[in-house]
């Protein structure tokens, strides 16, 4: 598969020199994202009053906690070289089901695990179809997207308010560090998810198998790795993360609505790509995804501060960033060959 035809290197350079060289190349996309993030933050601080407030930065987390969770799940899928188009729809379905059940008087302690289980099972189902029936991930998750969005519309076409005490408590709870400086519980949950996901990817057999599949699935199979099981598992993880993202979104919005999270799959994919994860799989870090989400959030913040710029600039800037990073990835992988 990957017949790497690098020029023969008869006298290998010293380990240290080589290490420096590959470290640079591998981390270029993440470093660029980091630099952009810092640069953009600096521009914000320099240009807008109050931008330097700590809370401005924390709000980026508060407003994007759900995206962070969804993108973490997407990272697993993309690292194997797959794609999950269903995430936005699963987020919406989760908010609708949660709101409906809560409205019907179900206790939060039942609803919460139930909706998480639902998303997980949806992911499991898509993973199974992809693995056992060799259906393209693109098509299988597209069907999942139609299914989830359709189900939520079927359940209720209108926005359902959530008045459950646990939900409202979660929505209003603020973890304060100092007066006027706080984060929401969702941020804590999202950070825990990110840490767990990063740990799993770096320190468990499952995580390393995810990378191996993205690198070369045929080789992974020949090396005796559980390719099928892992592939199903990443879609299951993504399904779980989507439903958890949905729960966080319902905390944030205090409503369930079938039109929530429209196009969120694109945001998640964009964040992952901008974070330096190769779309062909096998390379990238969860840390990069976090930076990607923050970058998207910061763009929105700046546009809000600017006032005269309108929300569509977000899309254009994201498009430009996507283009830049994809070309960058192309250059990096080409040189690596």
């Amino acid at each position: 598969m990957t017949a790497v035809t690098s020029p023969p290197r008869t006298a290998p350079p010293t380990s240290a020199a080589r290490r420096r060289r590959w470290a640079d190349r591998r981390h270029v996309p993440v470093l660029v994202t980091l630099a952009l993030l810092v640069g953009m933050y600096g521009t914000g601080v320099a240009n807008y009053e109050n931008f330097s407030d700590t809370q401005v930065l924390l709000n980026v987390f508060v407003d994007n906690a759900f995206l962070l969770v969804v993108a973490a799940g997407m990272t697993f899928v993309i690292l194997t070289g797959g794609i999950d188009l269903s995430v936005g729809a699963v987020v919406a379905l989760t908010t609708v089901v949660a709101a409906t059940l809560l409205h019907a008087g179900w206790p939060a302690a039942v609803v919460l695990p139930l909706v998480l289980l639902m998303g997980t099972l949806l992911g499991l189902g898509m993973g199974a179809v992809i693995h056992y029936f060799k259906v393209e991930p693109f098509i299988a998750t597209l069907a999942g997207m139609f299914l989830a969005r359709g189900l939520s519309l079927l359940i209720n076409r209108n926005s359902i308010p959530i008045t459950d005490p646990f939900w409202t408590a979660m929505a209003q709870k603020r973890i304060r560090f100092a007066p006027g400086i706080f984060i929401s519980t969702s941020v804590v949950i999202a950070l825990v998810v990110v840490l767990v996901a990063a740990y799993v990817l770096a320190y468990t057999r499952f995580g390393r198998t995810v990378y191996a599949i993205g690198g070369n699935a045929d080789s992974a199979l020949l090396m005796g790795l559980p390719v099928g099981r892992t592939r199903i598992a990443v879609y299951t993880v993504s399904g779980f993360c989507s439903s958890l993202g949905g729960v966080l979104l319902s905390f944030y919005m205090l409503s369930g609505y079938s039109l929530h999270a429209q196009g969120m799959e694109l945001d998640a994919i964009a964040a992952v790509v901008i974070g330096g994860v190769l779309l062909t799989g096998g390379s990238g870090y969860l840390f990069g995804t976090v930076l990607g989400v923050l970058l998207l959030g910061l763009i929105q913040t700046i546009i809000t501060f600017q006032g005269t710029l309108s929300s569509w600039w977000t899309k254009i800037v994201i498009g430009i960033l996507l283009f830049g990073f994809i070309v960058l990835q192309r250059l990096v992988t080409r040189r690596a060959r």
Binding site: L266, A270, S310, S311, W312, W313, T314, K315, I316, V317, I318, G319, I320, L322, F323
Partner: peptide, 9 residues
């Protein structure tokens, strides 16, 4: 992604 933004712009 960008095209939708351009249209809105």
């Amino acid at each position: 992604v960008a095209g939708r933004g351009i249209a809105q712009l």
